[in-house]
Computed example of a mutant assay.
Amino acid sequence: MLALLRLLAIGAVVLTPIYAALSIWSRRVRRRRLEAAWDAAQGPGGRDAYVAEGLAEYDRSLRRKLILGVYVLPLCLIGLIVYLTNFH
């Protein structure tokens, strides 16, 4: 059991930079889209306020939460494989 916990801890350490890179990339793509949308429409208000409001909405979105799957899926699969190999 201790070996499984150690494997999961190492997996979490390895997955952390992947999660960070994916999160930063996704936020940057969202920012570019918001800036392009404001530039095309020249919407009401300032560009910075429009982008900040859009990013605040993005922070509450499902897409942002789905990025946590980078941690959940691999660690659960490792746990499932170890369980099925040893106890099934």
Score class of each variant (00 low, 15 high):
Arg27Asp: 02
Ala52Gln: 14
Ala49Pro: 02
Gly45Tyr: 04
Arg33Tyr: 02
Gly43Asp: 02
Tyr50Asp: 09
Arg27Phe: 01
Glu53Met: 08
Asp59His: 05
Glu35Trp: 00
Asp59Arg: 04
Asp59Met: 00
Ile18Glu: 15
Arg28Lys: 13
Gly11Asp: 07
Thr16Ser: 14
Ala21Pro: 09
Ile24Gly: 01
Pro74Gly: 03
Ser26Lys: 10
Ile18Pro: 10
Ala52Tyr: 03
Gln42Gly: 03
Tyr50Cys: 06
Gly45Lys: 06
Tyr58Arg: 04
Val13Ile: 12
Ile24Val: 09
Asp48Glu: 13
Trp38Tyr: 14
Ala40Gln: 13
Trp25Tyr: 10
Ser26His: 11
Leu15Trp: 06
Arg30Leu: 05
Arg60Lys: 08
Cys76Ser: 14
Ser61Gly: 08
Ala12Gln: 12
Val13Ala: 14
Ala20Gly: 11
Leu66Pro: 02
Val70Phe: 08
Val29Ala: 09
Gly69Lys: 08
Leu62Phe: 13
Leu34Val: 03
Arg27Thr: 00
Val70Tyr: 10
Leu22Met: 09
Ala41Ser: 13
Ala41Arg: 14
Ala12Val: 11
Arg60Gln: 09
Tyr71Asn: 12
Leu66Val: 04
Leu62Asn: 12
Arg47Trp: 01
Leu15Gln: 07
Glu57Leu: 04
Ile67Met: 07
Trp38Ile: 00
Arg63Leu: 07
Ile67His: 05
Asp39Arg: 06
Pro17Gly: 12
Gly54Cys: 10
Gln42Arg: 10
Lys65Gly: 08
Ala12Ser: 14
Val29Ile: 07
Arg27Ala: 06
Ile18Trp: 13
Gly54Arg: 06
Val70Ile: 13
Ala36Asn: 03
Leu68Pro: 01
Ala12Phe: 15
Ala12Leu: 15
Arg64Pro: 11
Ile67Tyr: 04
Leu15Tyr: 11
Thr16Gly: 03
Ile10His: 12
Ser23Ala: 11
Trp38Cys: 01
Ala56Thr: 05
Gly43Ile: 00
Pro44Met: 10
Ala36Pro: 00
Gly43Asn: 01
Gly45Asp: 09
Ala12Tyr: 10
Ser23Asp: 11
